[in-house]
Design a protein around this nucleic acid. Structure first.
Length: 398
DNA sequence: TCTGGGGTCCTAGGACCC
DNA sequence: TCTGGGGTCCTAGGACCC
């Protein structure tokens, strides 16, 4: 409730913090195994949007029968043994593990389990930073008890509440804890102090650090910097020269395991979006009607999201992905915040006028930004309703 | 075998105001 | 008439994460 005090307590000098990172093991796949225990021990992949082939007698679909544009969301450790990874195209995954079972995602159930495991943790350690559906940071600093006992209690509470296993890393900061929780997956518990950095952290590849992605990794590789230890040895001035002041300096700090970011125990959303990739590429002229239908549907769903979550959008964005995967966005700031599908449609139309529509598209998305809480907004006294026109995609006025 | 959907944060240029 | 510096908003794109 008092952010300044919180950030002082977390970031300022004082006794070493005890920050835990808790990561659910193969989360979506593990939830599915609770429902389908007969699949335990088999390679199972979660992904795709809808079933594309009839079920076998077993009641399940084999990965090899999949045809479409989906990607792997999660895979069991048995499937990972074939080289299947999150984010991989399902067609490629099918080439690696044709006999793996494919299940469609059931996000409502995963969300429900997510709330359950977080509540179980909060009952023991209430200072939590939410990091998405399957992971959290937990501040153990002010809790009584040995670190290992506390972490074991958290793991046990998660298992009791959900039947699922998780991996936990505990260190003095978020950066190291995130690394530590990966070290002994699944069902792991890793506790590190700053003295452990040279032996446990420095041998890892740079890409293990949260914030060093494929681009930065490749750039580091070109400089013969492969491990975090290599990075720690690198001249900070050189890093700043190659990566910019902010990112270069951060790379140096991260490699030495230094991170004083406080836990963000609550936050307001900055944007809400909806997007969809089509089954097949669509042409703005030839498939105009279908594209219009899709866009209107996105506006309706975004309006529902805004209403359900209680926000108005001060800004509306359009996103197009062409068949060649190049992506462009257009933003439009509104005079006053809106939330209704009709108002979103009007804003999207102005974005659409500024976009080249001469090639096939594979994705359409819309985004609500500059969010205002509905109860905080007082509409101007004589606000007038703008009337929307019927045609939307590819208006003749373009 | 082509690459989902939901987000955050950063950079950078131009407009506009003081 | 020319000069300038700072601050903020808007827009577009990109890297990265779950």
């Amino acid at each position: 409730m008092t952010p300044s005090r919180d950030s002082f307590a977390d970031g300022g000098p004082g006794p070493a913090r005890r920050i835990a990172h808790l990561d659910m093991d193969a989360y979506f796949a593990s939830v599915e195994l609770l429902r389908h225990p007969e699949l335990r021990g088999q390679p199972v992949v979660i992904g795709g949007r809808r079933r594309t082939a009839p079920l076998e007698a077993t009641g399940f679909q084999r990965l090899r029968t999949y045809a479409g544009r989906g990607v792997v969301t999660t895979a069991t450790y048995e499937a990972r043994a074939f080289g299947v990874r999150s984010g991989m195209g399902l067609m490629k995954a099918a080439a690696l593990a044709p006999e793996a079972i494919l299940l469609p995602g059931d996000y409502e159930t995963y969300s429900r389990f997510s709330r359950t495991f977080k509540a179980a943790v909060a009952a023991i350690a209430p200072r939590i930073e939410d990091r998405g559906i399957d992971e959290i940071f937990i501040d153990l600093t002010d809790l009584p008890g040995e670190t290992r006992d506390l972490a074991q209690r958290l793991k046990e509470a998660v298992r009791q509440a959900t039947g699922l296993s998780c991996s936990i890393g505990v260190t003095p900061n978020k950066l190291l804890s995130k690394l530590a929780s990966e070290l002994q997956k699944p069902d792991g518990l890793t506790i590190l102090s700053l003295e452990d950095i040279p032996t446990r952290i420095w041998p890892l590849p740079c890409s293990a650090i949260n914030g060093i992605g494929p681009k930065a990794s490749a750039k580091l590789e070109a400089l013969q910097i492969r491990t975090i230890g290599d990075l720690a040895e690198a001249d900070p001035a050189m890093l700043v020269e190659r990566f910019g002041q902010s990112y270069g300096a951060w790379l140096h700090e991260a490699a030495h395991g230094r991170d004083d970011r406080p836990l963000a125990t609550s936050r307001e959303p900055k944007s809400i979006s909806r997007e969809t990739t089509f089954e097949r590429d669509l042409h703005p002229k030839h498939d105009r009607e279908e594209l219009t239908r899709i866009l209107l549907r996105l506006c309706e769903r975004l309006a529902e999201d805004l209403a359900r979550k209680g926000y108005l959008a001060g800004n509306v964005g359009l996103k197009l992905r062409y068949a060649d995967f190049s992506t462009i966005t257009r933003d439009h700031a509104l005079e006053g915040p809106v939330a209704e599908a009709k108002a979103l449609r009007d804003a999207v139309r102005t974005c659409l006028r500024r976009v080249p529509l001469d090639r096939k598209l594979r994705l359409l998305g819309i985004r609500a930004g500059s969010l205002v809480r509905r109860e905080d907004h007082r509409p101007p006294a004589n606000a007038t309703l703008r009337v929307a026109e019927p045609g939307l995609f590819l208006d003749t006025e373009r």
